[in-house]
């Protein structure tokens, strides 16, 4: 949908009005950005009288000629990615285990799984990291990996359970009817469909996981934030802190946005030929606001609607 049903196709008068508001809006936004740029670029006098040149001054950026800086940034990015990668594998495995536990027919498995899940979902990841670090003295890497895996595993588990629940009942009945055991039915009939349906949500959760690796900064893991801003500005002086911040921010955005983009592509692909998500996609494309269907899934299904917005 290119136009929204919320308002008519604009006539000449509304068109000019909309154009005027649009231009004013652009001017306001650009004005704000220009003001910000100037505010950052203005030289600052600190309390002790030393004058620091503005942010756009070359002396604030010359540090990036130094290879050491890039090596440190690369090391930090690699540390972040390796933590995210290891944690993602464990999170998906744990998520599968959680979903089986919660969907189990045996109350002795289902109840404890539910309690553990609720407990884990209500706790801050940071507290879990500190807990694992102090109680099991694992070192910061494994503390971070374990906390991220448990927390995101719980979320992925819930998503998978919702996926299993949303399947038509006939799928399970058909599996049982051809003589598969309940477990085999779950593994070979229900689970593959649920996983495929929930893949966009799982990937959106992995973006959250990648973002959350920065929490390991607090427990002392040398990831991108610690290596890139904290250590480097400690070494080269605080006048570079802003420059380092913007570069690290750009690296994070590049990593997260490309993963989100991948999630969107997969959402569009799986959306075309599987039951549940198609329903969501259709619902989204026929609703208000004029956004594309895939965006609706990525945004709403990902973390907007589910709200596990870490």
């Amino acid at each position: 949908m290119s136009t929204s049903v919320l308002y008519d196709a604009p006539g000449p008068k509304a068109m000019t009005r909309s154009r005027v508001i649009s231009v004013v809006g652009i001017l306001l936004i650009v004005g704000g950005l220009v003001w910000l740029a100037f505010a950052l670029g203005a030289p600052k006098t600190s309390a002790n009288g030393a004058v620091q040149p503005g942010l756009w001054d070359p002396t604030r950026w010359d540090v990036f000629n130094d290879l050491v800086v890039w090596r440190a940034l690369g090391k930090g990015a690699l540390a972040t990615l390796s933590m995210a990668g290891v944690a993602a594998v464990f999170a998906i495995l744990l998520g599968i285990a959680f979903s089986f536990g919660r969907a189990s027919e045996n109350a002795w498995i289902r109840r404890p799984a539910t309690i553990i899940l609720e407990f884990v979902r209500g706790m801050p990841v940071l507290l879990m990291m500190l807990f694992i670090l102090l109680v099991f003295s694992t070192g910061s890497f494994w503390a971070g990996v374990a906390a991220l895996a448990v927390y995101n595993g719980a979320i992925i588990g819930e998503a998978l359970r919702a996926g299993i629940k949303s399947l038509p009942r006939g799928q399970r009945e058909a599996g049982l009817a051809i003589g598969l055991t309940p477990l085999a039915t779950r593994f070979r009939i229900e689970f593959p469909q649920a996983f495929r349906q929930m893949l966009p949500i799982i990937i959106a959760q992995l973006v959250v996981l990648l973002k959350d690796t920065s929490l390991a900064f607090v427990v002392g893991y040398p990831e991108l934030l610690r290596e890139g801003i904290y250590n480097l500005s400690g070494f080269f002086g605080n006048r570079y802190a802003f420059s380092f911040f913007f570069v690290v921010l750009a690296i994070y955005l590049a990593m997260n946005l490309s993963l989100s983009w991948l999630a969107r592509i997969i959402a569009r692909r799986t959306g075309s030929h599987s039951g549940g998500v198609t329903a969501i996609a259709e619902l989204d494309s026929t609703t208000l606001g004029g956004e594309s269907a895939a965006l609706g899934i990525g945004g709403a299904g990902g973390d907007g609607a589910r709200g596990d917005s870490r």
């Binding site: 929204s4 919320l6 308002y7 604009p10 909309s18 508001i21 649009s22 231009v23 809006g25 652009i26 936004i29 973006v207 973002k211 959350d212 690796t213 920065s214 929490l215 900064f217 607090v218 934030l225 801003i229 904290y230 911040f245 690290v248 921010l249 994070y252 955005l253 997260n256 946005l257 989100s260 973390d303 870490r310």
Partner: peptide
Amino acid sequence: PVPSFRAFATVYTELVRNTPLTLVLFF
């Protein structure tokens, strides 16, 4: 209905949502 507002809101949402909280608070 104003396109420039829509674009700004989209960019704002995408940028802030993809920035780690630790980075925001560090800033």
